[in-house]
Computed example of a mutant assay.
Amino acid sequence: MNEQFFHLPEEKQQAIINASLEVFATHEYKKASTDDIAAKAGISKGLLFYYFHNKKSLYLFLYDYTKKLVTDQVIDTHFDEITDFFELLSYSAEKKAALLSRNPYLTDFAMRSFYPEKEEVSDSLNSNNQEIIDNSIFWYFKNVDFSKFREDTNPEKILHMLLLMTDGYINEKRRQGKPFVLEEIMQDFGEWSDMFRKMAYKEEYL
């Protein structure tokens, strides 16, 4: 992308970001129209491509923007004080849900980018998403007290199972052609976490 984008007034930057999120959130990547994005942002398509050289560049910028927005929302002072694995998962989920509820297009874009179809951006997104998952157990849980876990339990596998269950929820909704409901997945995620806590923690920590 062109660094001149960051020299624009904050209001104009946000208009372009919001327009892009809306279009990419409501359409598959290949069907998302840069003409629509430019029109909604109040700029010409030529100017849009001046700041973002092509459609893929714009999409990957939005991916990084969304990732940073969510991270900044979750990683706060209290986050670093939490030492319980499941409490940290719950806190993070609630913070993310609060952010996504205020930004409806952000929710759909985040879901589309984390579960990409076989499109031009898929390889880049899958690589980035896998890197996040692989590294999360190290930086995300750096202050967690893992001594609460039974010796025969692997916290990383529990995290993986929770992600798979979330994946299953999303994929089932897509298969049925039904919308992703944030409240439903939050309730289910809480129930899944409680179930794994009972299975994984030593008795004195239940």
Score class of each variant (00 low, 15 high):
M1L: 04
E11T: 14
K12E: 07
Q13P: 12
A15N: 09
I16F: 02
I16K: 00
S20D: 00
S20R: 01
S20E: 01
E22W: 08
A25R: 00
T26Y: 11
T26L: 10
Y29I: 00
K30H: 12
T34M: 08
T34Q: 07
D35L: 14
A39Q: 11
K40I: 13
I43D: 06
I43T: 06
S44A: 11
K45T: 06
K45R: 14
G46W: 11
L48T: 03
L48G: 09
L48S: 07
Y50H: 13
F52H: 06
H53I: 11
N54Q: 15
K56Q: 07
S57R: 05
F61V: 05
L62D: 04
Y63M: 03
D64K: 09
L69F: 06
T71M: 09
D72T: 00
D72A: 02
T77D: 07
E81D: 10
E81I: 01
I82W: 04
F86I: 06
F86P: 05
S92R: 01
A93V: 06
E94C: 00
E94Y: 00
K96C: 04
A98N: 01
S101F: 07
N103K: 02
N103S: 12
L106Q: 04
D108T: 03
S113P: 02
S113T: 04
Y115I: 03
E119W: 07
D123Y: 12
D123S: 15
L125V: 05
S127M: 05
N129E: 03
D134M: 09
D134F: 09
I137G: 06
N143K: 11
N143Y: 15
D145N: 09
R150H: 15
E151H: 03
P155N: 08
L159F: 11
M161S: 11
L162Y: 06
M165E: 10
D167T: 12
G168Y: 15
N171W: 14
K173C: 08
Q176E: 13
K178S: 10
E184N: 12
I185K: 04
I185N: 03
Q187I: 01
F189S: 08
G190A: 08
E191I: 15
W192V: 07
D194E: 09
M195F: 12
F196H: 03
R197C: 14
K198G: 14
M199H: 14
E203L: 13
E204F: 15
E204C: 13
L206C: 12
